[in-house]
Design a protein around this nucleic acid. Sequence first.
RNA 1: AGGGGGGACCGGAGGGUCGCGCGGGCGCCUGCGGGCGCCCGCGAGGAAAGUCCGGGCUGCAUAGGACGGGAUGCCUGGUAACGCCAGGGCGGCGCAAGCCGACGGAAAGUGCCACAGAAAAGACACCGCCCGCGCGAGCGGGUAAGGGUGAAAUGGUGCGGUAAGAGCGCACCGCGGUCCGGGUAACCGGACCGGCAGGGCAAACCCCAUCCGCAGCAAGGCCGAACAGGGGGGAUGGACUGGUUCCGGUCCGCUCGACUCCCGGGUAGGCCGCUGGAGGCCGCCGGCGACGGCGGCCCGAGAGGAAUGACCCUCACUCGCCCAAGGGCGGGUACAGAACCCGGCUUACAGGUCCCCCCUGCCU
RNA 2: GGCGGGGUAGCCAAGGGGUUAAGGCAGGGGUUUCAUAAGCCCCCAUGCGGUGGUUCGAAUCCACCCCCCGCUA
Length: 139
Amino acid sequence: MTPRHPHRYPRRVRLTRSAEFEAVFACRRSLSLPAMRVYWRDNGGGGWRLGLVVNRKVGPAHVRNQLKRRLREIFRVHRGEWQGSRDLVLNAAPTLARLGFRELEASVCDAVLRLSGGVDPTPPTRTPEPTGALPEPEV
RNA sequence: AGGGGGGACCGGAGGGUCGCGCGGGCGCCUGCGGGCGCCCGCGAGGAAAGUCCGGGCUGCAUAGGACGGGAUGCCUGGUAACGCCAGGGCGGCGCAAGCCGACGGAAAGUGCCACAGAAAAGACACCGCCCGCGCGAGCGGGUAAGGGUGAAAUGGUGCGGUAAGAGCGCACCGCGGUCCGGGUAACCGGACCGGCAGGGCAAACCCCAUCCGCAGCAAGGCCGAACAGGGGGGAUGGACUGGUUCCGGUCCGCUCGACUCCCGGGUAGGCCGCUGGAGGCCGCCGGCGACGGCGGCCCGAGAGGAAUGACCCUCACUCGCCCAAGGGCGGGUACAGAACCCGGCUUACAGGUCCCCCCUGCCU
RNA sequence: GGCGGGGUAGCCAAGGGGUUAAGGCAGGGGUUUCAUAAGCCCCCAUGCGGUGGUUCGAAUCCACCCCCCGCUA
């Protein structure tokens, strides 16, 4: 990692082709929240990568575009803080577009934290996630 | 000063930090496909929207044409083209500036006009009115002015006329025709003639005039894996076994399969199309104008699971609260995001700027 | 992005200028029955996605918007 620019967002950390999206969906691991649905898959190193799904129910084109830009911005800033290495696909619900940037940021970070619950070496000892028995390869 | 009408335009401004896309330059790395870093430049709209029209572009089809189908619809221009625009005509609204108008044809034909009404199209006479006959009920005839029905009933007003009436006659208006004048034309004006030809609906079928091949960048073209499959060629082999090491024998294959080479089509993916154009700005000239001509200057997005975001500061506008002017605190700043490119139309839109014109009131 | 199709009672829907906008399912009320189901009768109002226009008259014809569903990788 380049110490000078820790918050880069180059194209290679995005999911850019159908096969990559299909691979994430094929893992059949997801987390459903009121505001979004999160699919993920371990990609075996290389850091976190992001794919976005925002369908027309969310709003008109400029609303969808702004939402995707904000989600990318959140991912760019927080990507280095998260442990592990995974591909994420966020499927946004219509209510997500009504959130301000700060609320959006909090809800995305919360979602990532929750799906990392089973992986984190210091798991929160509260209620275990239903998918706690992840076949997590060693870090 | 108040009210109203028309046109053109802007659609937050400045700065900072992090980040993204494209182009250029330099450096480093490379498995030569590219990757990374630094610097510079550029990076959504007036509607980018709806996809309602028109064109360019691309492919397919096509001898020419007709039929079918669709579109347009006062005239003349503008334009690459248009259902757009400009000017003009006609009709309607407004005191006016101005605004609005699907504005060809119903004597080419077909069809429809519910209910009511006598009668809904070249048909008819309910109540009336008048004349004749009859004691009378009524009958025969004349009439379409009046009543009544209806969205719509054979032109309107007035005078004459008559038994009562009627374009029956006359004047004006309307309508039709011919001629003259103005205008490129739509149309306008005038003279004469005709007593009137004739209901409405063409966003009913239709007729007339003009225009239109079909599809759309997911068009179309190039490269092209893995895997499966197509076509053509090359090469003939494998197993077992007998004996005088060089000859045989049996079985299978020999149009299959396997091997190898070549060719062509497709898929994932990549590249081109992809942005310099009916382009923008300024000036001059022609034109009432839309627009055109000439000259100069400029380059202003090219993504592809899809680049414009996040945060902070100052200012502007606006709303609410506190409040003595002043200010303080908090909130908001529209409609909305390029996807091949243009010309229009339509729809959405906080707020604001400039110019011209009309009406009313007051002052000079 | 491009190209098609469609909006009629809660649901499925016919009607394509004429005055009560068919019919079926569901729901409600009544009748029948000892009771239930079935049957029979009645009900769902100003309404045909909105806004204008044409017409005497519009769900129907025309224009413009809104929404929904397909096709095209």
